[in-house]
Design a protein around this nucleic acid. Structure first.
Lengths: 339, 339
DNA sequence: TTGTATGCGTTATCAT
DNA sequence: ATGATAACGCATACAA
């Protein structure tokens, strides 16, 4: 393989000059640069990324750690996110490094590996918890990172989030307008900031109508379809039965739909169900799911862009960005038919 | 950050010995090793992966290129695959590098970048075409790789595949046993080897029953839900209408279900529909989709393992592995109710 | 069992 | 505008 040394030897130039010509430094003479570029192309020269990385001290990689548990990956939204991130990073000639979870029991282990081994220049975090150990770790290490989702220390780093509280307030208001009064909440571990936010939006909408949240009408799933079905089973056993279920995400909602159907309940008539987050699943569902969508792929691209900014400049302080979701009406909810 | 030099200085040992102790070389004395390991732990020493990579000439990374077009990523099976690969690689301390498609128009560009830049030690290819330019390129470069899916040159590399022909033969036989005689095929670009294989299985089952494939009953989608709906629309316009549709995958089948439903056809009664590949989607579908599943996550792990073997040894020649899918009966198909 | 010396292929510093 | 030379941090062939 042809390297800088061979290139410079053939050209009768120093490696320094060749390197500068290749990397577009301004002080190189025009015809010198032309000669260098020509030969480099002819010989099919490609710089050795490993050497460049060691020399420059930059890994040219961004890390993303796969979430805990298998279930996570069942969510199609993950692939969209990755695709968006990968696209934007590729344009900057950065690679995306996906690290699996560690089985050692220490949830921070993959982050330590990535950061301490200098395998990545920065990271993208997903599904932040309100108190997020990863955030604390990365802040302590001074590593650039961006999160999808807010957390208690969000003012110390760049983040992007969708306003889940507003979205769930809108969904709940829609159900209230349909006449529902016993509206269940199918949530997730409230340690997740998004779960907390969405619940807050639901409570807010109820409060605006003078209703108080009934703790018996809340059940938390695990963000999977079976988890949604199980949590729905709990709530549908309550008497009087809730006439509507607001679900933390679409996968959960699909599970709830399955459980409702199993009980012979007509979805959108006997019980209303809403989801969140995933246009694909919602569109595929039968009946089509009322949900809130946002451009997850573009969010991935934006996250990568935000991180690139952190990597490049040491300029302005990091900022947060709150996007709005769009309520997409389906046929999974409708007027309350209950006394 | 503490590096090998500092470690050796503090210990009064050479960098060589420290390195050897850390990397488990047998010639290091027991108490020497203990001292080294102890201090390394105390100081939180982590080797600089960038330096190790340059020095060893190994990138410690495996590459995976995101497929062309957005649609690809809508398929949840992708996330499962990645999760499986990532898990197995992580155990070997290798990173998974995800590279986005290049917009330059050259489909090989991302592969060139990864390989020529020595960014990866090996690659995993997905969705091979019968004549696959990526395979030809990697073979010419002598880079270790594994494919999910077979191709014309499969005897020259390691691969893993699911027997799509057998699976589609089984699905089609099931429909034939239900009394269906006009069975449509919702396919995909036959340049994909899997599309070709699955179609062959379908034809084989028909032939075994003395039927010949009617070209008017084949339409190719693009492996998306809308693509499936569009292709289904074509076939459902045929007269006499096919009474069953064998679909290339579950996403396509879901699209076909939507189109059938739109026309007022009862799925599983007026028209039978089968899918392939994705347990999650099939289970979510209403009615539940008859499909063929295989453990995609385990396939990812196995692919990684196969690649690791290629990376380590220069021993036995690469082999192929053909897995069988499992037919999962749902309610999306049933007895033919037509003449 | 331990140490010395060199190489890995670039980028960066400092001259010229 | 160009070049000589020194890092970058580790691995390893060769010596002792």
């Amino acid at each position: 393989m042809t390297d800088l040394k061979e290139l410079s030897r053939r050209l009768g130039l120093s490696m320094t000059t060749v390197s500068r010509a290749l990397n577009g430094y301004p002080e190189v003479g025009a015809q010198t640069r032309a000669r260098v570029l020509k030969l480099a192309r002819e010989l099919g020269y490609t710089p050795n990324a490993l050497a460049r990385r060691l020399s420059s001290g930059r890994a040219e990689c961004v890390g993303f750690v796969l979430g805990d548990g298998h279930r996570y990956f069942n969510d199609p939204y993950f692939s969209e996110l990755i695709a968006g991130i990968g696209t934007a990073l590729g344009a900057a000639n950065l690679d995306l490094v996906i690290s699996g979870v560690d089985c050692s029991g220490d949830p921070l282990a993959p982050y330590r590996r990535l950061v301490d081994g200098r395998r990545v220049d920065g990271l993208i975090l997903d599904r932040t918890r309100t108190e997020d150990a990863r955030v604390a770790f990365l802040l302590s290490r001074g590593v650039p990172f961006v999160t999808l989702g807010r957390n208690a220390r969000q003012n110390e780093h760049a983040w992007l989030d969708v306003d889940g509280a507003a979205a769930f307030e809108a969904l709940t208001r829609r159900l209230l307008a349909f006449g529902h009064r016993r509206i269940g909440f199918l949530g997730a571990d409230p340690a997740y900031n998004f779960a907390h936010e969405r619940f807050a939006g639901y409570v807010r909408a109820l409060a605006a109508e003078g209703l108080v949240m009934d703790p018996a009408l809340r059940a938390d799933g695990d963000l999977t379809e079976p988890g949604g079905a199980a949590a729905a089973a709990l709530l549908l056993d309550r008497r009087p039965m809730p006439t509507a279920l607001v679900c933390i995400d679409d996968l959960t909602a699909l599970g709830a739909m399955r459980e409702a159907r199993r009980r012979g309940l007509a979805i959108g008539r006997d019980v209303s169900i809403t989801g969140y987050n995933d246009l694909i699943l919602a569109a595929i569902a039968n009946p089509r799911l009322t949900t809130v969508s946002f451009p997850i792929r573009r969010a991935g691209e934006r996250l990568a862009t935000l991180l690139l900014e952190r990597l490049r400049s040491d300029g302005p302080p990091p900022t947060g960005e709150l996007w709005s979701g769009a309520l997409v009406a389906g046929e999974s909810d409708g007027p309350c038919r209950d006394g």
